[in-house]
Amino acid sequence: MKKGLFIALVTFLVLGFNNVYAMSKNDLEEKLIKSYTINGTTFQASDSDITKIKRYIKQNDISESDADYISKKVDEAIDIIEESGVKSLNELTKKDREKLVSICNDVSEHTAIKVTASKKTITIYNMDGTIFDEFDSEVVKKTGTTNILLMTSVVSLIGVAFITRKKF
């Protein structure tokens, strides 16, 4: 789970991008599925997660402003992890986790992509209000690198927030 969640976050990195232009859906998709290296470790979304990412972006009209906003917030999240020097989310300090939670809240407040989390279930919604995907939060904790939901940066961050907030 730890490495999988780390992969989830890493997947949405937009490293080296200056964001001088608004990001399109296609740009966002490309960035979400490519591989990245953080603190010496290379990560990439699994096959199934790439499938979900592509399907979500294809089906939902993510605005350029939302895509751009998400991209910037992911950069902030990755900066936090890079500065911490950790290779696993479980190694993050409580303070760093709280920072990630704040980022999740911020993205959820400012974009149209909605995720809810209960004690047992994490639910991702399409923009028409229907459910896009749903999974057991325990699965996120236990599953391996090939079986993590890597939806959007919002999802992964909120997923992290959900997991990490329980340890506060």
């Binding site: 999740c104 809240n105 959820s108 909605k114």
Partner: peptide, 10 residues
Amino acid sequence: RTFNNFTYVP
């Protein structure tokens, strides 16, 4: 804030 966000009703 976290509670409010996680009680989103679509």
